[in-house]
Every structure is written in C-alpha cells, then in structure tokens.
Amino acid sequence: MTQPQLKVSPETLIADIAAVFEQCETVFETANHTRHYTVADRTFTAMSDIAPYLNAVDVAVASDEPPTGTGARIFIGVAGQNGCPALHWDAPYFEERRIEALLKPTRYRMHYFHPLNYWQIFDRQTSTGLQIMTGPDQHPAWDLGSPLRNFFQWELASYGGALIHAGTLSVAKKGVLLAGAGGSGKSGTVLSGMLSGLQTIGDDYVYVMPKSLQAYPLFNTLKQDSAGLKRLGLLGHKALPTRTNWQNKYQFYINDLGLTPQPKSISLHALLLPTIAQSSKTTTVEISAKQAFLALAPSGVSQIPGDRAQLYAAAAEVSRNLPCFQLNLGTDPREVSNAIRQFIEEI
C-alpha cells in the first residue's frame, strides 16, 4: 500500500507536526518489535520493524534495569513502509536555529538531517517520538554511537536535568566530569582509567542533574583511535570491531571489556578539563567556572538540537556548582589514572 507523503513547512510547522503524529498513531500498535530501556530512572519504549536498528540500540544504550512505568515511546520506521509516512521538508532550506526557536514555546521538538531525509520529532506533552528514515540503515553515520540521543534530552529535560557532553570517572560512586573538545584526551583518559580500576558512566554523554550533581549513564559506547588503543595495550582486544567508524575510530562497548559492572549513577565532585601536556607527572590546576564552561558547553549545545538554550544553562550551572580544574595529563596512562584516583579520593 502506498503511504502518504506529508509536507512539513516552516510556515505551518506546528500543524504539520501534529498531522504527522496523527498519521503515525497506528504505527505504535503494528510495530513488530518492542524494547524497553531504563535511562536515568525513566523508561523509554522503542518500537520498530527494523530489528537490526533495535539490536544496535540494545548494545549502545546503558540500560539493564527493568522498565519503570510507561515513560516515553519512540517509533523508529522507514518512510513508506508499514504505515509510516514519508516526510518532505517543504522549504528551500532547513534553518535549524529558526526551527528550534519556532518550536521552543510549543510541545514539539524536532531534528532533520537533510542529506538523508532523516527525521526525529518529539511531542513533550505525550512523550511520544518518531524517527523516520528512508531506509533501515539510512541514519547519520554517528547515530549508532549514541542512538535516540535527542529523544533522551527532549524527554529528560522535563525532569530537571540535561545531557552533558563529557566523560566521567569515579571511585565508589564519587566522580568527576571530564570535558573538552576532540583531541583533548578525554576519551583516552576515561578508557585508561577504566582499565586501571576506575569506573565510568560514559565517555561522551551523560545525563546530569545540575542542582543535585547526580549523573546517570546514557550509553555504553566507547570510541578510540588505533594510536590510543595501542598506547593502552588494547589493539587486538576481542571487544574491538574489525573496522573503524566514520571518525576512523574503533567503536566498542563498555560491557565487552570484561570489567566489573559500572555504576548506575554517580555524584559529581569536580569538573576536569584534560589537556595533553606531555609532562612526566599528571597535575591539576584550578580554573574559573567561566573557563570550564567555555570548554564544556559548546560541543554539547551544538550536537543536541532543539534545546540549545536549556543545554547552555545546564552547562553553566554545572560549571558553577563544581570546582573546576585543568588536568595536565602525564604520558604514562597508569600514572594518569592513579593521579585521578587520588584526586577523586581526596576532593
């Protein structure tokens, strides 16, 4: 059966999105596969006919708790199949910020990646999400590293927290955030720490409650280039895939490293900005909240559309509420990890 093509236009955006949800109501009932994920104590139910996609979500999303309540529901479908409509952006350009501003006072959030005609739309009032692709694997290359990320932000924003683009390390559920741009050493520091007995709730994105400074895991995904893996003695590890991802990094998962289970949440006690210092010893230097914020906020704000102002405010609050330090990384991974362990235990 031919499915309708629905037009979405900036001029009639709210009505168009409402029409999309109306058209899609039955897809939740007819989807062949259903999965439940508990993220930050909230249940997300993903429904789809694309079993491989859900399998990838299973691996990447940090959830091994039973579902708690109904929570949010998200349908992942292929346009034109099984009742899922094809969507068409009915304007010459998609201006992300303009659309974000239009939707801010409304119940809706959306993301549109035009090269693949890939859509994510969320109704905050009903906690219902739609991810519509043109084919089962027609998602952005980076999508499977942090699948459903935007939906997590859009839903969890209602509970006082926000997704923060940072890694973590912890000892006995007492932890630190590690933030910085690509190449700062953040992911390598997290991975090195894990191999030395520290724990983590993530190396890329975590959900943080800025007031209570509790942080929760979102994804099991780890990424590292071959040089970093070699430095840590992980080249050839059975957890690694045979091929690198779109960033020429190996993408693998915490659970495959054979380590002790990671915590379900941690309390944050500091914000660290790793810097590759090439020094013999790892040191910390206290920095201002403003400096820390300037390192923490930009990438997260840029990578999660729809809630930029809220993400900016959350990153600011986290920076203000935590003591902030530049972490000058030594060259020996074990020494770095020991220094961070000592830092966490003493702070």
Binding site: Y93, F94, E95, E96, R97, Y112, F113, H114, P115, P140, A141, W142, W246, Q247, L294, P298, S299, V301, S302, Q303, R308
Partner: peptide, 24 residues
Amino acid sequence: VYDDLADLIVADPIHDVDAEAGWP
C-alpha cells in the same frame, strides 16, 4: 570573542554540514 565555536553551532542551514564526516 570566541569565534572558533561558531562552526560547531551554526552549520545552519544544515546544508552546510559535511555529508561524509557528518555533524557537527
């Protein structure tokens, strides 16, 4: 003025995004 972050945040309209390397 911190202009170096603008490339990350703006990429707007998203036609500006590198289709191979992806967002951002």
